[in-house]
Simulated scan of single mutants.
Amino acid sequence: MRALAEFIMHSRVQAALVVAGCVSLPLFYWLGAAAGCLILLKYGLKNSFGVLSLGLLSALIWWLQFSDPRVLLVLLGSSSLALVLRASESWVRTLLVSVALGLIYSVILSKVFCSQIEALSQEIIKILPMIIEDFYRQLLVGERARLALMITPILTGLIAALLQFVSVLSLILGRYWQAVLYNPGGFSREFYNIRLPVELVMLLLVCIVSGLYCGSQLVLLALICSVPLVFAGLALIHGLVAQKYLAKFWLVGLYVTFLLFMQLIYPLLVILAIFDGLIDFRSRLTLRDADNSSDKH
């Protein structure tokens, strides 16, 4: 990864080639977005526009050719988050802005992908009785109708939240590259200390609960608001490992289980981030160790 970062920063031509080339490949568009974030974080928008414009052109062609706006959305979204991080030097503010970005994604998807999402929703509705047979049989007619109405917003929210997640992930990779090249150890200090303040945690929690219980069209809000909490939960685990309160094998286990059992680990990370916002585990553990050390002396 360091070699790729050095190649990107060697010249504008090489940077443009990486951004445009990766964006043109469906499996590596996130890598092109990360390269764009690296350029923006280092040089700002004015001095990076020429490099990014080629990537934007490739993403636009991809949209027009294959009717797929996701590549363009991630490139624009991650670049916007990079500008926010560069200006504010605050991961908390950047993660908060990612919620607005996810909402924008959902609006665009509901317009551009409306027919595709609706068609997929109808297919899911047809097979729901077979997927959740026992549960579905117990539902009343009105409850089945409400469940059917939730499928489209859930699908829209899932896709929007996934694009939001990838956008933040691309920014993280770009920031990591920047630290490796120009500020060794800086990324670790930043990421390990990410903790959402209690006011923001409560706001996100209210949005999640409202999205789950206050109408089918708001379900996507719960999904989008969960993304900052997931990254805060990951930062908490990394921070505890860095402070040697957890062994390193916890990280390996975390990411393996995250890939295999995302439906279980994802909400667990959200819950951890909520409790960390309320309790601040890292500060409490550090304070406890300091008290224990002073008692020994």
Results as ranks from 00 to 15, higher is better:
116 Q>I: 06
128 L>H: 06
118 E>D: 13
107 V>W: 05
130 M>H: 09
110 S>C: 07
136 Y>N: 10
130 M>C: 00
110 S>F: 10
115 S>Q: 13
126 K>L: 13
119 A>G: 01
125 I>K: 12
114 C>V: 13
112 V>K: 02
128 L>A: 08
106 S>D: 10
106 S>Y: 01
110 S>H: 08
103 L>I: 08
109 L>T: 01
128 L>N: 07
114 C>S: 15
127 I>R: 11
133 E>C: 05
112 V>R: 01
104 I>D: 00
115 S>T: 12
103 L>A: 04
113 F>K: 09
103 L>M: 05
133 E>F: 02
119 A>C: 02
114 C>Q: 14
130 M>N: 07
129 P>H: 07
131 I>R: 08
124 I>M: 13
107 V>A: 09
108 I>C: 03
109 L>W: 00
117 I>D: 06
108 I>T: 04
103 L>H: 00
110 S>M: 10
123 E>G: 14
126 K>C: 05
126 K>I: 11
126 K>A: 14
120 L>K: 14
121 S>M: 07
116 Q>L: 10
109 L>H: 02
123 E>D: 15
136 Y>Q: 06
109 L>F: 06
131 I>A: 03
132 I>M: 08
121 S>Q: 09
126 K>R: 14
124 I>Y: 13
114 C>F: 15
130 M>V: 12
129 P>Q: 05
107 V>P: 00
107 V>Y: 06
102 G>H: 02
109 L>M: 03
122 Q>G: 12
126 K>S: 13
132 I>L: 13
118 E>R: 14
128 L>G: 00
136 Y>T: 03
130 M>R: 13
113 F>S: 11
119 A>S: 10
119 A>L: 08
135 F>K: 11
136 Y>R: 06
136 Y>V: 00
125 I>W: 07
129 P>G: 03
121 S>C: 07
134 D>W: 06
116 Q>P: 03
137 R>L: 05
132 I>D: 10
112 V>M: 03
104 I>G: 04
108 I>V: 12
136 Y>K: 06
126 K>T: 15
110 S>P: 03
103 L>Y: 04
130 M>T: 13
118 E>K: 11
137 R>K: 13
112 V>D: 05
112 V>S: 02
115 S>Y: 05
118 E>V: 10
135 F>Y: 12
118 E>S: 15
129 P>K: 05
137 R>E: 12
107 V>L: 08
137 R>D: 09
138 Q>H: 04
138 Q>W: 00
125 I>R: 12
106 S>H: 04
110 S>V: 00
112 V>A: 02
129 P>L: 03
134 D>A: 12
115 S>W: 04
102 G>D: 02
117 I>V: 14
129 P>C: 04
122 Q>V: 05
138 Q>R: 10
119 A>T: 13
112 V>Q: 05
107 V>E: 06
103 L>T: 04
103 L>E: 00
114 C>N: 15
126 K>W: 04
115 S>F: 05
130 M>D: 12
116 Q>E: 15
120 L>W: 09
128 L>C: 02
106 S>M: 01
106 S>L: 01
